[in-house]
Amino acid sequence: MKRLIYLSILFVGFLVWSSCEKVIDVKLDTAPNQMVIEGNITDQNEAQLIKISQSVPYTDQNVFPAVKGAKVTVTDDVGHLWTFEEREPGSYTSVPFKGISGRTYSLKVDVSNTQYTGISIMPKRVHLDSLSLKVFTFGGKDVKQLQVHYNDPAAEVNQYRWVMKINNVQTKRVFVGNDRFTNGNNVAELLYYSKDDDNKELLSGDEVQVEMQCIDKAIYNYWFTLSEQTKNGPGGGVTPGNPPSNINHNALGYFSAHTTEKVSYKVK
C-alpha cells in the first residue's frame, strides 16, 4: 500500500515537472571501517552461510574487505551447536543442516577481541503460491510489474522479505511486507520495480526469480528501515539512519533465521 502512495507522488512529479538530475561532488566525513556481519539460517538442508566483511569509505570501490580468522558458531534452543568453517575469505559455512520453524538460533562471532552475538527465531513457513504479471498503463506506456501471491495465515503475525532477480541479477530495491493490513487473506503483493533502481525495465523474455522469506519481527524492522531510505533533502523521504541490527556491539548487518522458497517466471 505504501508503495502505491509512493507511486502517486512519483506520478505527480513526473507529470507536472520534468525534474532534472546531475551527479555532484559532495564532501563526506569518512568513518573508520565498521564490522559487517550477515548471517542467514534457512529451512533448507544446506550449508548455512555467515559472511563477515567491513565497510569502506564512500569514495572507494564497492569492494568490501573480508574479515578473516573469526570463530563462528550457531546454536539453537534445543542444544545443537554448529561450528562454521572459513571456506573462502570472510565466508563461513557449516555442514548442511536445516533450520526448524519455531526454534531460536543464536549466533556467536569471535573476532578482533570482540564477541558479537545475535538471536533470531525462525518463523512458520508461508507457501509462495505463484507469480503473475501486472501491466499498468502510464502516460500511454505499458509498465510491467510482478506480483507475488501467497495465503497469509490468520493465526499469527507474519513478516516477509522478497528477493527478486532479473536474468540472475538481484534488483536493488528492498521488498518487505507484513500482514498488518492483509492478515488471513489471499495476498497479491506488488513488487514495485522501477527503472530508477536498476536502469532497466521489466521486459518480455526476462527471466525473473523471486525468493520469499518468512522473517521475524526484528529482521523485518531491519529491512523495512533500509527500504525507507531513499532520498535526502526537502524532496527526500526519511532522515536516513542505520537499520537496527539484531547483532550487538554496533555491528552492521543482521542475523536472520528464515524460511525460503523460490519461484521463477518468464515475462510474457
Binding site: 565498521q34 559487517v36 569502506v56 564512500y58 538481484q170 533500509l226 533533502g233 542505520n242 548487518g253
Partner: peptide, 20 residues
C-alpha cells in the same frame, strides 16, 4: 541532511553507513 560516512554490503545490496 545526513550523508553516508561509509558503505557496506548487506543482502546483496550496497548500503550506506550513517554516523551523525
Amino acid at each position: 541532511v545526513t550523508y553516508p560516512a561509509g558503505k557496506y554490503s548487506t543482502g546483496g545490496l550496497t548500503t550506506y553507513y550513517y554516523t551523525e
